[in-house]
Amino acid sequence: QIFVKTLMGKTITLEVELSDTIDNVKAKIQDKEGIPPDQQRLIFAGKQLEDGRTLSDYNIQKESTLHLVL
């Protein structure tokens, strides 16, 4: 699992595989929060994550926290 922190300070827990693409992750956030993926920007280690890449491409591990910017 990974964590996604919103600017409102809310933390969302997502069940993911490290082979999941950023697209997949955004879809899971949409399922939980109702935010359309095209409005989501995910940040990790100061970098904006690109849709076609996977979590492992960015060296994101289990229990990592991503930041969601709208």
Rank of each mutant, 00 (worst) to 15 (best):
Ala45Trp: 07
Arg41His: 14
Glu17Ala: 07
Thr6Ile: 05
Ile12Asn: 04
Ile35His: 07
Asp20Ala: 11
Glu50Lys: 15
Ile29Ala: 06
Ile29Trp: 00
Asp20Phe: 12
Thr6Gly: 15
Lys47His: 14
Val16Thr: 06
Thr65Pro: 15
Leu18Asp: 06
Ser56Leu: 04
Lys62Trp: 06
Ser64Met: 13
Phe3Met: 02
Thr11Phe: 06
Ser19Pro: 04
Asn24His: 07
Lys10Met: 05
Met8Ser: 14
Ile2Cys: 01
Gly52Gln: 10
Gln61Thr: 12
Glu17Gln: 11
Ile43Val: 10
Ile12Gly: 01
Asp23Asn: 10
Val69Gln: 01
Gln1Ala: 02
Pro37Phe: 13
Gln48Val: 03
Lys5Trp: 11
Asp38His: 04
Leu70Phe: 09
Leu42Ala: 00
Ile35Met: 09
Gly46Ala: 04
Met8Ala: 12
Ile22Asp: 00
Glu50Ile: 11
Lys26Ile: 12
Gln1Met: 03
Val4Met: 03
Gln48Arg: 04
Lys26Phe: 14
His67Pro: 15
Gln61Gly: 11
Asp51Ala: 09
Ile35Trp: 05
Gln48Lys: 01
Lys32Ser: 11
Thr54His: 08
Ile29Asp: 00
Leu14Met: 12
Gln39Arg: 15
Ile60Ala: 05
Thr21Tyr: 07
Glu17Pro: 09
Leu55Ser: 01
Glu50Cys: 12
Glu50Val: 11
Gln1Trp: 02
Ser56Asp: 08
Gly9Met: 02
Gln48Asn: 08
Ala45Tyr: 09
Tyr58Trp: 09
Ala27Ile: 07
Ala27Tyr: 05
Ile60Val: 07
Lys28Ala: 13
Lys28Asp: 12
Ile22Val: 04
Gly34Leu: 05
Arg41Ser: 12
Gln30Ala: 11
Thr54Lys: 11
Ile60Leu: 05
Lys5Arg: 07
Thr11Lys: 14
Pro36Trp: 06
Asp57Glu: 14
Thr13Ile: 13
Lys26Cys: 09
Tyr58Ile: 11
Glu63Tyr: 06
Ile35Thr: 12
Asn59Asp: 12
Asp57Tyr: 10
Ile43Asp: 15
Lys32Tyr: 10
Ile22Leu: 07
Thr11Leu: 14
Pro37Arg: 09
Gly9Glu: 14
Lys10Ile: 06
Gly34Ser: 04
Glu15Ser: 08
Gly52Tyr: 04
Ser19Tyr: 09
Tyr58Val: 13
Thr6Val: 07
Gln30Asn: 04
Ile2Arg: 00
Thr54Gln: 04
Lys10Val: 05
Thr11Glu: 10
Ile22Arg: 01
Lys62Ile: 08
Gln61Phe: 09
Glu15Ala: 10
Asp20Arg: 11
Leu18Pro: 07
Gln40Arg: 02
Arg41Met: 13
Lys62Gln: 01
Phe3Asn: 09
Ser56Pro: 07
Met8Trp: 12
Thr6Asn: 08
Asp20Pro: 00
Leu49Ser: 00
Leu14Lys: 01
Ser56Ile: 05
Gln1Phe: 12
Leu70Cys: 14
Ala27Ser: 07
Asp31Leu: 07
Asn59Gly: 11
Ile22Pro: 08
Val69Thr: 07
Gln30His: 05
Gln1Thr: 13
Phe44Thr: 06
Lys32Thr: 09
Arg41Phe: 10
Pro36Gly: 02
Ser56Gln: 06
Leu7Ile: 14
Pro37Asp: 13
Arg53Gln: 09
Ile2Met: 08
Met8Lys: 09
Leu7Thr: 15
Asp38Leu: 04
Leu49Cys: 11
Thr6Gln: 02
Glu15Thr: 03
Lys62Cys: 10
Leu7Cys: 15
Lys47Ser: 14
Asp20Lys: 13
Val25Met: 13
Asp57Leu: 07
Gln40Asp: 03
Gln48Leu: 02
Thr65Arg: 09
Lys10His: 06
